[in-house]
């Protein structure tokens, strides 16, 4: 059973709908016991970094997530991916979950349409990420965001990026349990569903 963290952010039903369609059992929850007993965790989210961290700190949810991320597959999506990093700079400096070394800051290139909204092509930086197993190549996924991540160590953590006024991290991985997708797999057609299915296969 996958716990989809429900902390009041965004359209979390989309993630649930996608997992339902794939026949993968999941539950929307912020209950710490349920999260601890789950087989894997998805942290979705749209909204602002400081607001989301605040929500997660309530009732010790952030600590539970940090602890569980060392034991079971964990996927952050969009803002959920950005929260994996050490720090964010949306409105103000704000500490993140610190699961992937790096920071999150505004996409700021002259002449660039912001937000980065739409389908962009995945460029692969690390080849053996299990979430990308069986993708056909020329893989487009759906993005919508105005901030992007900066990994401290691309060679270690940056699995895939796309080009939008420079490299925009699309998928990060700590090499163990923690994955982060800047794009929305639940809104990326068959490619996205395949990525979610791959994630569910990590459950031991």
């Amino acid at each position: 059973m996958i716990a989809i963290i429900d902390y009041g952010a965004g359209n979390i039903f989309s993630v649930k709908n996608a997992l339902d369609m794939l026949g993968i059992e999941s539950v929307l929850t912020k209950d710490r016991k349920l999260i601890e007993s789950s087989d894997a965790i998805i942290l979705p989210g749209v909204g602002a970094f400081p607001w989301a961290m605040n929500q997660l700190k309530k009732g010790g949810l952030a600590d539970t997530l940090k602890h569980e991320a060392t034991k079971k597959p964990f996927l952050g999506i969009c803002l959920g991916m950005q929260l994996l990093f050490d720090k964010g700079y949306e409105f103000e400096e704000c500490g993140g979950l610190g699961l992937i070394p790096g920071k999150v800051d505004r996409i700021d290139e002259p002449g660039l349409t912001i937000p980065h909204m739409g389908w962009n092509k995945l460029e692969y930086n690390i080849k053996n990420c299990p979430l990308f197993d069986g993708l056909p190549g020329n893989d487009y996924v759906y993005f919508v965001h105005s901030f992007k991540a900066y990994c401290d160590n691309d060679d270690r953590n940056l699995v895939a990026y796309c080009e939008y006024g420079g490299k925009v991290p699309a998928m990060v991985w700590d090499g163990k349990f923690v994955y982060g997708a800047q794009f929305h797999p639940e809104k990326s057609g068959k490619i996205g569903l395949k990525i979610l299915q791959n994630f569910s296969k990590l459950i031991m």
């Binding site: 069986g134 068959k190 569903l193 299915q197």
Partner: peptide, 10 residues
């Protein structure tokens, strides 16, 4: 999308 409509994906 012509390349990812393949049933091989699932």
């Amino acid at each position: 999308v012509t390349n990812n409509l393949s049933p091989r994906l699932f």
